[in-house]
Nucleic acid binder design. Structure first.
Lengths: 242, 242
DNA sequence: CGTGGCATTGATGTAATTCAAAAGACGTGG
DNA sequence: CCACGTCTTTTGAATTACATCAATGCCACG
């Protein structure tokens, strides 16, 4: 959302102030709606297109051979995706809400456009930045936070991203399983944490998927932190790799 | 590393077959060596430069307020980094081995160059792809694998990346703490898994930091897989977010 | 030859998973 | 409209993988 509009239209620095960048991009875009559960960028071959969620929500999943699933990213309106060409094994992007609208931009045409419009080069870089930043944030969550912290983060993040600002009430259109696979927890743990947060007065439910945040701070602070002791740097030096 | 050379010099598709792309990029590069533990891209402001590891190794860390640390990425020769501008709180990139050589490219100049050389646009995109792909892989590891699987993956990954192909012997220039923070495990767990792997005949040590892989398969397969049951899609539909 | 940071190993605790089952939602069709 | 079947969500009890705490051994280095 912000990224796109910000970068596109509030960006008068480039010399060529002709056509708004949004118009340039949309000139090669194709809009398509998807139904709940339907796969986006089906079989046209991954790596061919850049995508943007216009409305609705989607999940970017990896499925492991044994049935485990990791949701790598939840895609909300304004989010771009489609960076990974390398024909990754079992990656799918699926709409979470009915009627999710997705714009797709062929990479080839974007690159052609970029040759004549430097603003686009910059925009593409910012889009990539954004994707990398989100990944990094998620890595921290998966690596360092406990269950309570993860769910708390998740609620706060969703509250912000869904309404583009710190909102108190939010609707979670995804299932508990989706939340679990997004946070790398079991469904049961997600439920337990949610009811625990309710019990502590941090949130209330106005429906299974409707949450109201009462105490934002209680969500941010998880369990007790743990200290760690680091001297300084790394191991004694050894010969360089052969 | 392959990315760089491949994309640069074995890329005769563009119309402009004048200067090799590598020469174009290196024309704006500054090379600098770093000592072990020294911070890269110190205080020139993050987001200003794109970097590439020429030789040696570096770690891309986040430090949490309570002292927890997560190594988001281990950077090997050929890896690019420096995508996150957003002045992230406590992010540092530090050399792991003495004399790590880093090339830095100012983003501004790269973008200027890109205006006249479409190949560079493509290369920048591929660099971003690569960074995103690595992040996604790491997310899977952090989210889905148990300790044994993580260490196994790590060894296999390092064996491949360090020698650009499946090698049996490898030198790990980083400390056990680094490995632990990379895999989001405790140091003790990393040690235990390593000695366990040794006990099972999957690896041997020819020195604390020198490992020889005896049974690659044993490293790939971790503990017992767990099944999961998914119906199909997400929750029953609700009203869209306010 | 001691000192300090790494590495390894053991004992213990605990957060989160797994197993099991009940209670809600929701849709379908009689 | 209600009964029925299927998912989803929730809660409980048992299990476990990993972290934490605590010691000791190990190499460098001064």
């Amino acid at each position: 959302m912000s990224l796109y509009r910000d970068a596109l239209d509030a960006n008068p620095q480039a010399g060529s102030c002709q056509v708004p960048l949004s118009a340039v991009m949309e000139s090669v875009a194709v809009l398509k709606p998807f139904r709940r559960g339907q796969q986006i960028h089906g079989r046209e071959g991954p790596g061919e297109h850049l995508y943007r969620i216009v409305s609705g929500m989607a999940r970017d999943c990896v499925l492991l051979a044994d049935g485990r699933r990791q949701i790598l990213d939840l895609l909300l309106p304004g989010d771009f995706f489609g960076f990974t060409d390398h024909a990754e094994p079992e990656v799918t992007v699926e709409a979470i809400v009915d009627g999710t609208l997705v714009a797709s931009y062929p990479w080839r045409r974007l690159e052609t456009l970029a040759e004549s419009d430097p603003r686009l080069v910059r925009l593409l870089r910012e889009i990539a930045f954004d994707a990398v930043s989100r990944s990094r944030g998620r890595m921290l969550i998966l690596g360092q936070l406990n269950a309570r912290e993860r769910v708390g983060c998740f609620l706060v993040e969703m509250a912000e991203r869904l309404s583009d600002g710190p909102a108190a009430a939010l609707v979670l259109p995804m299932s508990r399983y989706d939340i679990a696979d997004y946070l790398a927890l079991s469904v049961e743990t997600v439920c337990r944490v949610l009811t625990d947060l309710k019990g502590r007065g941090a949130i209330t439910f106005t429906g299974t998927n409707r949450v109201k945040i009462l105490d934002r701070c209680a969500l941010q602070a998880g369990g007790r932190p743990r200290e760690r002791r680091y001297a300084q740097s790394s191991a004694r030096q050894e010969a360089a790799p052969a």
